[in-house]
């Protein structure tokens, strides 16, 4: 019995591995196709009488960007203050707490602002996109769009993709300012350094490259969040349970993709 079971287990393992690999490749293909199709509609939609709706684009900008200002601001302030607290605590060992501005400025602008903004937008908008498109799919609303001669990618995906591409960097920029302000406020409280002096030092330390580094990767995060949310929404099968699963999957994938991309970006940028 056990002799027979062994090859079965091995066979099952490779069978499963093969299936997972094919499914993974298929999903990657979907991301690529959706991205290409989105740019196609964005550029050529007008020519075939199907332009991207400006109203939907602004509405998505409102949803993804403007409505996230509050939570992103609070989180950025908390992270900025936390960086200042930890920085002063560590540097005190060497008696160099006055140099805390270096650590705070670089980590906030290059790392924490894009990362925290990306993760928050993934939790808010990545899941919302996935749930919305998934629900539309099971309610046959996607089919309804197609039979009305309205391309669902042009109608649903492009406005979200474009909005995420613009609003995530915009939120990141705001996050940088709020985070640095909060850090400056703590440094002022802990070390007596004025906010103006903190700001002055920050500006002299940072270069345009640092800013572009943070904003550049936040644009990629925005693209990833929108793509992952949409693809998971389109892949929904079954009813409400399928929507729930897709939403969870979208958030997990978004956050994982953001962290891995962040690491790769840091690696490439510091080579």
């Amino acid at each position: 019995m056990s002799e027979r079971a062994k090859p079965n287990a091995v066979f099952r393992f490779f069978d499963r591995l093969g299936r997972l690999s094919v499914a993974g490749l298929e999903e990657l293909g979907r991301y690529g196709t959706l991205l290409v199709e989105s740019f196609y509609w964005l550029i050529f939609g007008h020519r075939i009488g199907q332009p991207v709706r400006i109203g939907a684009f602004f509405s998505e900008m409102m949803e993804i960007g403007v409505r996230a200002i509050g939570i992103v601001g609070i989180m950025a302030a908390a992270i900025g203050a936390m960086l200042a607290i930890q920085g002063i605590y560590s540097l005190k060992i060497f008696g160099a707490e006055g140099h805390v501005v270096f650590g705070v400025a670089f980590s906030m602008v290059r790392e924490f602002a894009p990362l925290i903004t990306g993760i928050l937008v993934a939790g808010r908008s990545g899941s919302a996109l996935s749930a919305r498109i998934g629900t539309m799919k099971i309610n046959q609303e996607i089919d309804a769009l197609e039979v009305m001669g309205i391309n669902p990618v042009r109608f649903l995906v492009v406005p979200s993709l474009l909005a995420a591409l613009i609003m995530v960097p915009a939120l990141t920029f705001m996050s940088m300012i709020v985070g640095l302000w909060a850090a400056g406020a703590y440094v002022n409280f802990a070390l007596g350094m004025s906010l103006a002096a903190f700001l002055d030092q920050t500006i002299s330390i940072l270069s345009v490259n640092d800013l572009l580094h943070g904003l550049g990767k936040s644009a990629i995060f925005g693209l990833l969040i929108a793509l992952i949310g949409v693809v998971n929404g389109f892949m929904v099968k079954g009813g409400a349970e399928g929507v729930g699963k897709a939403t969870t999957r979208a958030v997990v994938q978004c956050i994982s993709a953001i962290v891995v991309t962040d690491m790769l970006f840091a690696l490439v940028a510091t080579l």
Partner: peptide, 21 residues
């Protein structure tokens, strides 16, 4: 493009309505 054109001549009432919520 032609398929879009053809679809303008078709109308569908889905089982659950499929109205955009």
């Amino acid at each position: 493009k032609d398929l879009f054109g053809l679809r303008k001549k078709l109308g569908v009432a889905f089982q659950a309505g499929a109205l955009f919520s």
